[in-house]
Amino acid sequence: MRREPPKTFGDYAPLLFPAGMLTIFFVVPFGTMIAVSFFQRQQGGFYTPAFVFDNYARFLSAFFGGVLGFSLMLAIAVAVCCVVLALPFTYLLTRMARSVQVLWLVALLSVLSLSEVIIGFAWSTLFSRTAGITNVLVALGIMSEAKALTPSFAAVLTGMVYQAFPYTVLVLFPALVRLDPTLTEAARTLGASPLKAFFTVVVPALRNTITATLIMVFIFALGSYLLPQLLGRPQHWTLSVLITDQAIYQSNMPFAAAMAVFLVLVTLGLVALTVVAGRRGEAA
């Protein structure tokens, strides 16, 4: 079958429904949100059409700067933890028997599909005083009495790594599957130990993949909207949490929209970086 450019109306027809749906229900809502970000807020949760920069001007506060800084720092921490944990894991996984791989993939997908609500609930249970991990430590005699581990920064980080870990593995999986196994075998015949071969051959060969994965997991972590709220204190709230909070509980749609637009810009900038990193990967 030679692919040909569409000529008649009939050739274009299949595109109508998807293009219409995506335009009406994604492009237009996106535009609406951008428009609202310039609107003026009214008391009582409504807003009136206007063209003001007030919502954006609020970014210039120390509070907002702090939230942004914390969000970025937290997302970076999650991305680094996930890649460090997932890279050797995925590498070893791709070298295992197919049936074992499938089993792990099913488990990872199941965890990945879990609602943030459920992950938040599960970890807050695990970190609770009455039903948590500390009870096991008490039973083993390691701790003298059970205590709550949440809310805390460590709890937020753990929950988010839990959420992003399966995603990281699935992003790394295809690149590692395609990695030529004879590379490490060659390194082994040249006298490198398995560990040394991993760090001197696999990691450098995957430099671009690792960069791209870091950025993708970073974006994924930026999107976490509930875990910081469920497992942390108010000072652990991220931009995503703040947007949700402003939109729903403070009913300040214009400010929420302005923050969302800002978040999009940050994300798009990073996607562009990923693409550039990917391009360079292909060129190399």
Partner: peptide, 12 residues
């Protein structure tokens, strides 16, 4: 980030 799609839908 999912919040963005969600907020877009809400305003829309």
């Amino acid at each position: 980030p999912p919040v963005i799609t969600a907020l877009g839908m809400l305003t829309f």
